[in-house]
């Protein structure tokens, strides 16, 4: 280091220079190697700019594989939607029925039957005439609405009403509904409660 007093005299100090040696080759090699390794990592993990891939998922196939599809929760969630769009209008979003419109589903013995057969007939064929629900008599009509509902949606809505508002019964699968629908055939005539009671639960 030069003495400050010395360099502040009236002479011209030369700025430092840089030597003109070449860059060692191994640096380029190392850079290329790192670029290669980094790209391999990026290729494996990044999801290639897909806006829906967050770690720990690495690609779309993996994300698909972990979507909870078969789960009852998903089915019930779907059933809730369908219910609120269609059935809730008459039976109430809370499943308590509406006086003069439709009987309750919460706690209903028709809903909580040991199996799905009778229950599935109700929306598929419609009901009319006298029906006793939780000890009360109703006499009205519910039209068939099976035509507008897929097996999956109907299964979802039946599973939903069987597992909501305190109801706790087994789920209904799309295959179950498909079976009932096939047995009914193409002429859904509204049934009476007596006819329903003659069928297996």
């Amino acid at each position: 280091m030069k003495d400050p007093a010395q360099s502040s005299t009236d002479h011209q100090e030369n700025p430092p220079s840089a030597s003109v040696s070449t860059v060692p080759l191994w640096i380029f090699a190392l850079t290329l190697l790192l670029i290669f390794l980094g790209t391999v990592y990026f290729d494996h993990h990044s999801g290639w700019f897909n806006p829906q891939i967050y770690s720990p998922f690495e690609n779309e196939a993996q994300l698909e594989a972990y979507q909870p599809k078969s789960g009852s929760a998903a089915m019930i969630a779907r059933g809730k939607q369908v219910y609120e769009q269609i059935c809730g209008i008459c039976h109430g979003v809370d499943g308590m029925g509406k006086p003069g419109q439709a009987p309750p589903l919460a706690g209903s013995e028709w809903v909580n039957a040991s199996s799905y057969n009778r229950l599935a007939h109700i929306p598929l064929m419609g009901v009319n005439g006298d029906i006793t629900v939780e000890g009360k008599d109703w006499n009205m009509a519910m039209a068939a609405m099976g035509a507008s509902l897929s097996d999956a949606d109907l299964a979802a809505v039946l599973s939903y009403i069987r597992n909501s508002w305190g109801n706790k019964s087994a789920m209904v699968t799309p295959e179950d509904v498909a079976g009932v629908r096939a047995a009914i055939g193409k002429n859904p005539v509204p049934m009476s409660a007596q006819q329903l009671e003659k069928m297996p639960q």
């Binding site: 430092p16 220079s17 840089a18 030597s19 003109v20 040696s21 070449t22 860059v23 060692p24 640096i27």
Partner: peptide, 8 residues
Amino acid sequence: PLEGRFTA
């Protein structure tokens, strides 16, 4: 001098 203009 600075060791290596090109390295820099």
